[in-house]
Design a protein around this nucleic acid. Sequence first.
DNA 1: TTATTTTTTACAAACGTTTGCACATTCATA
DNA 2: TATGAATGTGCAAACGTTTGTAAAAAATAA
Lengths: 341, 341
Amino acid sequence: MIMSKTTIVDIALALGITPSTVSRALAGNKKIKASTREAVRAKAKELGYERNEVASNLRRGVTKTVGIIVPRINREFFSSIISKAEAVLVEAGYSLLICQTYEKAENEIRALKTLSSSRVAGIMISHSAETPSSKAIKETIRGSKIKLVQFDRVFEDLPGSRVVNDDFNGAYMAVKHLIERGYKKIGAMVGYDTCLAFVNRYKGYEAALKEAGMPLDKALVFPGTIVRETGYANAGKAIDAACDALYSSGDFSALGALECALARGLRVPEDFAIVGTANESFTALTTPSMSSVNQNPSDMGRQAAEAMLRLLKGDTAGEEIIVDTELIVRESTGGKKQQIK
Amino acid sequence: MIMSKTTIVDIALALGITPSTVSRALAGNKKIKASTREAVRAKAKELGYERNEVASNLRRGVTKTVGIIVPRINREFFSSIISKAEAVLVEAGYSLLICQTYEKAENEIRALKTLSSSRVAGIMISHSAETPSSKAIKETIRGSKIKLVQFDRVFEDLPGSRVVNDDFNGAYMAVKHLIERGYKKIGAMVGYDTCLAFVNRYKGYEAALKEAGMPLDKALVFPGTIVRETGYANAGKAIDAACDALYSSGDFSALGALECALARGLRVPEDFAIVGTANESFTALTTPSMSSVNQNPSDMGRQAAEAMLRLLKGDTAGEEIIVDTELIVRESTGGKKQQIK
DNA sequence: TTATTTTTTACAAACGTTTGCACATTCATA
DNA sequence: TATGAATGTGCAAACGTTTGTAAAAAATAA
């Protein structure tokens, strides 16, 4: 049975009315007589009518689609954000278009072009680490109706809303916790200084040390990437410098650090403590299990999606939302092994 | 500077030619004189022209968008599939629309409606566990041009392509490995018998035993769920039945089994060996680290996306693709702890 | 009854692009 | 000088919907 999609014209023809009336009836327009509305609805169901969103979007000049741009989908942090954001947006009748940048500025530009070309209603973005400035996105937004929500990695000179973690406080709590446990020489892997989130974490580290009257030793601060390998390498340097604890802006680098410490025969946490950031699920499964600053990505995804919906509805022109971080204490800083489900 | 989007009409007007010529020029149509083509390209760049995909899609009757439906985005297996699929599709000029079902049949139906309404060119789907039959998707596909690729969880009575893991061989290799290591009594947690993937794994277990001339003892085969708790419980039964090794259709149940064995004072792998399935990232981090059958989700994502592109190009009407599984040998079956890369 | 308002529906244009067909030009062939 | 093919461009319709405005029908008032 070959049947092409039924359109409102088919419905109109079948009922002896015009497409415009059908359109209004389906939209629930009050100007249409209740009886006509019902007849249209019934006929639509009978013919298996499905609105052509493409045509609708063209006519209305705006889509019911939101684009989301992230460095990588297969990172727990981002996939949890996307997961929650999708749920919130779908509930409001929007669809989600996904783009990855793999941390490359060129991919971010391509993604922006694609989404702009697709006439998405809004863009939710967490910038690639290699994106040098807000220039590309500024050009994309300019002169278009596209609403913007930045999350996690944000530029401050862009319109729209921003959702960020309380990175300062997360780092501050983590380092304060180390100090309270009695660690005396605490190093830090702080990530890129081009990224606000990392800078704020560094400031939290700094603040906790200062509050405790501990000196800030630049030699114990390791900038740059925060992957497993650099974690391993930097931990080696920290241990050589007689550190007894290490704060890390990431969990993978913290994992590398843990492996390094264990490889060197140190006892964790007795001789050396480590606290990471992001609360990746593996942190509960390492031996010893790892303390980490939980970023609550699910909450971030919800906040970002809701902020987007508010922008789309015109309820706001832009907001700054800060998502709480929390310190999860596990064995690597003297806590207990936790259960996971 | 308020500027509305430039259209091909603007370009045509600026050059004193018609929109149709502009359209053809931008499409690289060979019938257009090279000089005109260049002039159009230059003017388009000058005016910051960006094709309106919505209009283009409407006119062409098909979009450059593919929808993907998964139970959950924030599962390593699925996010890795999506991640790779996105990369492949973007390279071919397609965008990815994402929908989650949370394992609910009703959400799957809603997702199908949305994608169908959006006139996606194709749908990639891994069915929700609660979807009772292929009915809903059959109705969505019928009479439309939408191409279908099922992956991981598939129905066999649907058109299009299917991408599945080589579950049989994965289980077969895992059990054969245990036999070669000298284990004599090997139990198995095999999962649901309603799911093809699990059935195939059971067959692989059976085949490996048979090949080695070992008896198949039904009392050592544990069906049902494969979560951590059942893993713990079933391992207890296996140990009581004097098993010295256990194959599991899942990693979480394998983790439970590991915890049970250790709790009972057994040495792993000396007294009791365990091998799981899925190669979840935590398997490398347990103590001892756990052997597992890797399902290679990234490869599955690539295969699924490429299969979709072939369907869209009309190169095929449907294929069945089997993605290789591979056994990752770690400490729980006598392998070595893996090194950091 | 006619005039006036209110309700309901129809008409037609528009969104921006693509594309079949026709027309015009150029060029080679006879 | 026709004839026929290439080659290059324009015309106009079409995709399916939405929506401002006009018109018809019904209800109300005078």
